[in-house]
Simulated assay, not measured.
Amino acid sequence: MTTRIFLRAFNLVVCGLAVAAFAACGDDDGGGSGSGSGGAGGAGSAGSTTSAGTVDPTTTTTSTGSTDTSTASTAASTSASTGAGAGPQTIEMIDDMEDNDNAILADGGRVGYWYTFNDATEGATQTPPPDPEGTGAEPFTMTALEPARGQSTYAARSWGTGFTEWGAGFGFDLNSPEGVKATYDASAYTGITFWAKLGPGSGTSATVMISDPGTDAAGGACSDKCDAWQKTFAATEEWQQFTIPFAELKQGGWGDPAGTEQIDAAKLYSLQFQIGKAPEFDLYIDDLGFYN
């Protein structure tokens, strides 16, 4: 894939996520400003939402084990045989990771690049590393799965140690052509679905966060306390599929209120995954899509 380097303004908030398995950083405590790594060989958005989440760490889990229910790598949508009421019936893939690059699939008008971010704890490490200057020297790459998860051979993954403020994570913007962050209309979908697992020693949960105009600095309603819509899910060292409706996403409760009761799915900015402060973390995400 032809790559381009994008230089962007980074908007990570100063307080971040404390997943239910870890101690919260507090509503008013200052956190380190994170930096993003991504872009097609360059820099992605730093992500404008990190969260001191207070959401319930329960989750909607639709499947466990290593069976792959969504294997199409290029089609915009694919059927998922999960059974009546057991999960998504139709999935539009955002990224299946099989092309092993840092761009999400160019379907449905989406343009985005994977990046990493963290709380900048001194001495802490994260792989892939953030790239706030957009040098493109170390772009986000996918991790080969050994063994493969069904037909899936690659997954998005970030791991590291030593983050003590609010933690670290990774994600992408849904619509950032030429490096300019814009909204994406996902109102035709019910929510998101993805497969996830944790590496050894990474706790018991992680959080997915999605921002809209009320919870992203790009929307103008918040600046340094952008509190994303989020859901904490109970991950393990085994692959599980998670199906999370937009209606279940809640703000973490530590930052600026969005001014609405629910996320505005017609105007989404970023989708991110985060683990709170911990001695070490290792999070895998695979076959991520919108669903109905």
Rank of each mutant, 00 (worst) to 15 (best):
G199C: 13
S205Q: 11
G171T: 03
A186D: 10
G191E: 07
L174G: 02
K197I: 08
L174C: 02
A182V: 11
S187G: 13
A168N: 01
F163D: 05
T161W: 00
K197H: 05
G179M: 03
L198Q: 07
T193P: 09
K197T: 09
P177F: 02
T190W: 01
V180I: 14
N175S: 06
N175I: 01
S187I: 13
S202C: 12
W166M: 04
G201N: 08
F170Q: 00
E178Y: 05
S205M: 08
G191L: 08
W159Q: 02
A186C: 11
W166D: 08
G171Y: 03
A196T: 10
W195A: 15
N175R: 05
S202R: 02
W195G: 15
L198M: 10
L198K: 06
A155P: 04
G199S: 12
Y184A: 13
T190P: 10
S202M: 12
P177Y: 02
L174N: 00
K197R: 13
T204Q: 09
A155V: 07
S202P: 13
T204M: 08
A155I: 07
T183N: 09
Y184E: 12
G160Q: 06
Y154G: 03
T164H: 01
S202Q: 08
F163H: 13
A188K: 10
T161I: 02
S158K: 00
T204F: 08
S187E: 13
W195C: 15
T190V: 14
G201Q: 08
P200Q: 12
V180S: 05
S176N: 09
S176D: 14
A155E: 06
T204L: 10
G199T: 14
F172D: 01
G203N: 10
K197Y: 06
Y189L: 09
T164C: 01
S187Q: 07
K197L: 07
